[in-house]
Write a protein that binds this DNA or RNA. Structure first.
Length: 422
RNA sequence: GUGGCUGUAGUUCAGUUGGUUAGAGCACCUGAUUGUGGUUCAGGAUGUCGUGGGUUCAAAUCCCAUCAGUCACCCCA
């Protein structure tokens, strides 16, 4: 009989992990609050059509990585593989655009993609990200990129590299792709198979190919989309970089940076860290001026980024090996009566002072309980046995100094108030 | 979906050219201290050697398959 284990590509977060996750999440929440972004939480599953329309049918995500199923009522549903489309769906559904001209939103949530797991990639993973919906102006692009950079900086991540590019407005996409195909037709046979397929299906993505031979051919023959964008697009990009310069954000203009999802327009960017390995992207994002309209809303420009939580933890180079105290006080009891009384007193201490108190429920020996108290890293142990109960006192032991004193039971909870204020 | 590497105790790993009772550190438990932890000392428990088949007198060890983990490709966070 095989034991059931977590599904491939999914992970349990144990207390040892969650303590670390919560620290990071708290910093993110605080960071977002300071920037005036409000949290949004959307359902883990959506109508499959949302992703078909939002992400693009020919993308890898939609064509082969989604967890989709038909439920008992015949609805076609999908576990969200990304969060921009759901957030935009919610934005439209709740007519958030009518409340104010600009909505600044952020999220920390889990996503699902059926890929082969490897370092920095799971089937269920977590992202935090922001979506600023409503501003067409370069200031908004700059704010988003600055925030992405700054949050990694506050986390102390080393080896950061920001790459940015512009793929222009949607109107120039088709004419550009036509010239790109023309330019490559003569050398098509020299490209790798996937590149040859992409020429027709998703030509922009040619630039993502890591095959050195393909790259060489592209360098020689392929025109960059950046050189085909309009003057307006170019000045938009210039404003974005000017603000980044002013903010002291280091970046590289990477003309080959085109991103994988169909909805991007104008600015695209990515932050990588050299500490990560093969999956080196910490976060990616850009402007998506057509998506709101695409999903049935009023034409509204937007910018955002999505950042991988698991990759952030890898970049920390820290598996959460911190020694955290799980409790402040261990309530050691010996015998049935003392244990019962101890439950009442422990609760009194919790209620009065809000400190964490752990009671004994294993009926262990004193030695075993002391060892447990030490393992938990508590500062105090309250000892209550028959002897103490008879005398109406409890022994309070300070685990650092090993000193102990007798405290009358009716003064026990007050005793910790004094100590807590030291 | 494709390829490489790895599966031995809770965990990290050792286990010689196949050889009979499969080991160590850490962790855990008990005792020294009949009611006092973290140090020390003494002792203890724990394994379908990932699973299934094959070769052999004999398999943790060799072969095949399968599953799982991991890294990389693809792609992305």
């Amino acid at each position: 009989m095989d034991n059931i284990r977590s599904v491939k590509g999914t992970k349990d977060l144990l207390p040892h992990d969650t303590i670390h996750w919560r620290e990071v999440e708290n910093i993110i929440h605080q960071f977002m609050a300071v920037h005036g972004y409000g949290e949004i939480r959307t359902p883990v599953f959506e109508d499959t059509k949302l992703f078909h329309r939002g992400i693009g049918k020919d993308t890898d995500i939609v064509s082969k990585e989604m967890y989709s199923w038909t439920d008992q009522g015949g609805d076609n549903l999908t576990l969200r593989p990304e969060l921009t489309a759901p957030v935009v769906r919610a934005y439209i559904q709740h007519q958030m655009g009518t409340l104010r001209p600009l909505n600044r939103l952020y999220y920390i949530d889990s996503l699902f993609r059926r890929e082969r797991p490897q370092k920095g990639r799971q089937r269920e993973f977590h992202q935090f990200g922001i979506e600023a919906i409503g501003s067409p102006h370069p200031e908004q692009d700059a704010e988003v990129i600055t925030m992405a950079y700054k949050i990694y900086e506050t986390f102390g991540i080393k080896g950061l590299s920001v790459k940015i590019n512009s793929i222009g407005s949607a109107e120039i996409r088709e004419p550009y792709l036509a010239t790109l195909r023309d330019a490559l037709n003569s050398v098509k046979s020299a490209l790798c198979n996937t590149c040859q397929n992409r020429i027709d299906k998703n030509a922009l993505r040619l630039f993502d190919c890591k095959n050195p031979a393909c790259q060489e051919i592209l360098d020689k023959n392929a025109p960059f989309i950046f050189d085909h964008i309009t003057d307006n697009d170019r000045s938009h990009f210039g404003r974005v970089t000017a603000i980044l310069d002013e903010m002291g954000i280091p970046y590289d203009h990477d003309r080959k940076l085109v991103r994988g999802l169909d909805y991007y327009t104008h600015t695209t960017f990515e932050i990588t860290s050299s500490t990560l390995g093969a999956q080196d992207a910490l976060c990616g994002g850009g402007r998506y001026d057509k998506l709101v309209e695409e999903l049935g809303g009023k034409s509204t420009p937007a910018v955002g980024f999505a950042a991988g939580m698991e990759r952030l933890f890898i970049a920390f180079g820290d598996d959460g090996e911190h020694e955290h105290s799980l409790a402040d006080i261990y309530f050691l009891t010996l015998g049935e009566k003392a244990t019962q009384k101890g439950f009442v007193l422990a609760e009194e201490i919790r209620e009065k002072h809000g400190v964490s108190v752990v009671s004994e429920t294993l009926q262990r020996s004193m030695k075993a309980q002391m060892r447990e108290a030490n393992r938990l890293g508590v500062q105090f142990v309250v000892i209550l046995g028959d002897n103490e109960l008879e005398k109406g006192i409890a022994v309070v032991k300070n685990m650092d100094s090993s000193e102990q004193e007798e405290i009358p039971l009716d003064k026990l909870s007050d005793h910790f108030m004094v100590d807590g204020q030291e």
